[in-house]
């Protein structure tokens, strides 16, 4: 890990908020897209990241190895996203329809839409690893670190997930 990154982590550990912001911003695309994969919405992704930085700040003293900072904070981000999703689920009926009609916009890419629908039918644990692996291009080891499961489980979930995905698409006669 680069020296200036390590230095910033030490600064953040001693309570320097600006250093922590710069650390996150140094990999802002990675964090933001990770949040986006879960939240699928700009506002919600930003909310999840705000939650994350507060939790990271509160708990960074307990981080033993500096090298683990990025995967550790991404784990926190994933948990923040999941927490938001649970809440969102409960209040969705109270909201009015927003202007951004995602469904409309996707109707052109019907194949993508159908694929997404099949993906969403899978158990969340498969969806999660498949998206991290393929949509975010993470390797097995990183996925294992970020969602805190053994690397063997990551592999077997990806394999099983692909199998289930294929089966589900075949049953639907999607012309695979």
């Amino acid at each position: 890990m680069e020296q200036d990154i390590l230095h910033r982590i030490w600064q953040a550990k001693s309570g320097d908020k600006e250093a922590l912001i710069q650390l996150i911003m140094s990999q802002k695309e990675d964090y933001y897209r990770l949040a986006y994969v879960y939240m699928k919405d700009q506002e919600d992704a930003l909310d999840a990241m705000s939650d994350m930085i507060v939790k990271v700040f509160e708990n960074i003293k307990s981080l033993k190895t500096e090298e683990a900072f990025f995967s550790w904070s991404k784990t926190i981000l994933v948990n923040c996203c999941k927490q938001h999703l649970r809440k969102k689920h409960r209040v969705i009926l109270l909201q009015e329809l927003p202007e951004e009609s995602y469904e409309e916009s996707y109707s052109e890419h019907e194949e993508q839409l159908a694929f997404e629908a099949h993906l969403e039918k899978l158990n969340v644990k498969y969806q999660e690893v498949l998206r991290l692996r393929f949509a975010l291009d993470m390797d097995y080891a990183t996925i294992a670190k970020v969602i805190k499961i053994p690397i063997g489980t990551v592999k077997s979930r990806i394999y099983a997930g692909l199998q289930k995905l294929q089966k589900s698409m075949e049953v639907d006669g999607n012309g695979l």
Partner: peptide, 21 residues
């Protein structure tokens, strides 16, 4: 899907949001 995700820009307000959090 990945191509779609890659086009998603990080919003400018991210840094300000983190700071205010």
């Amino acid at each position: 899907q990945k191509a779609h995700l890659d086009t998603i820009e990080v919003p400018d307000q991210l840094e300000a949001r983190l700071r205010s959090a």
